[in-house]
């Protein structure tokens, strides 16, 4: 059986350069298949790099349950060193002390028809069958997104609350992993858009939705996973 096929999508917030995008994604092709998205917090420094580190670690270690993710976090934190300039302005020193923060959503799809997901924060997993949304997780209501989510900190000693879920997939099912602004918009509008639109068309829709303020102007990232038929 073929492993899932993927399509990825990202766009920095309007007015920002692509290099300033603090959303990240990673994919582990083959079986078990894995994909992850992470969203670096606007209000912490080095959060884009932290988000990239988290998705890469997830796709390497595949911690598919909350307990497994909690267990890995100390190791992931210890292995991360931000690229710090030699002369630190006072405000960067404070931000470095506070650490970087990001939301993380990871999905593992097994060839036996099962899947598992873990999440910290407000990135969203959509499970689609045909042209229908089966489930959205961990948030299924576009009004429940806010600006103060619980995130994974690079310096925090404590364990963030990790949520976990699992289910079965059918041939032809699709999953969309989306960071918060995109996830909220898809839930409120049409969750099947990422399946139906080519990447450049989706980018045009996102830009237009931002202009009419239906989609918050934030970095967006998504991984679309097509399960084999």
């Amino acid at each position: 059986m073929h492993a899932p096929l993927v399509r990825t999508f990202w766009l920095p917030r309007d007015g920002n350069a692509p290099t300033a995008c603090e959303d990240a994604f990673a994919v582990r092709p083959g079986w078990p298949f894995a994909a992850a998205v992470a969203d670096g917090a606007t209000e912490s420094a080095f959060s884009g790099a932290w988000a990239r580190h988290l998705v890469q670690c997830f796709c390497r270690d595949l911690p598919a349950t909350p307990a497994a993710l909690q267990q890995r976090l100390a190791q992931w934190r210890a292995a991360w060193q931000p690229d710090v300039p030699a002369a630190l302005p006072w405000y960067v020193a404070v931000k470095l002390e506070e650490g970087a923060h990001a939301a993380l959503l990871g999905l593992v799809v097994q060839p036996d028809g099962t899947w598992q997901a873990v999440a910290v924060g407000d990135a969203v997993l959509l499970h689609l069958r045909g042209n229908r949304l089966l489930a959205a997780w961990p948030i299924d209501d576009p009004d429940r997104f806010h600006h103060r989510p619980t995130l994974i900190g690079s310096r925090d000693d404590g364990a963030p609350p990790v949520e976990g879920t699992e289910g079965r997939w059918m041939p032809g099912d699709a999953f969309v992993l989306a960071t918060d602004a995109l996830g909220a918009w898809l839930l409120g509008d049409d969750p099947t858009l990422p399946l139906r639109l080519a990447t450049d068309e989706l980018a045009r829709h996102v830009t237009a939705a931002r202009r009419r303020r239906a989609l918050r102007n934030d970095d967006v990232a998504a991984v679309v996973v097509h399960c084999p038929r």
């Binding site: 969203d39 917090a41 606007t42 506070e98 600006h147 103060r148 989510p149 619980t150």
Partner: peptide, 10 residues
């Protein structure tokens, strides 16, 4: 004043 995602721990 909201300028973007702010970790709940801060």
């Amino acid at each position: 004043l909201e300028i973007g995602t702010r970790p709940s721990t801060l």
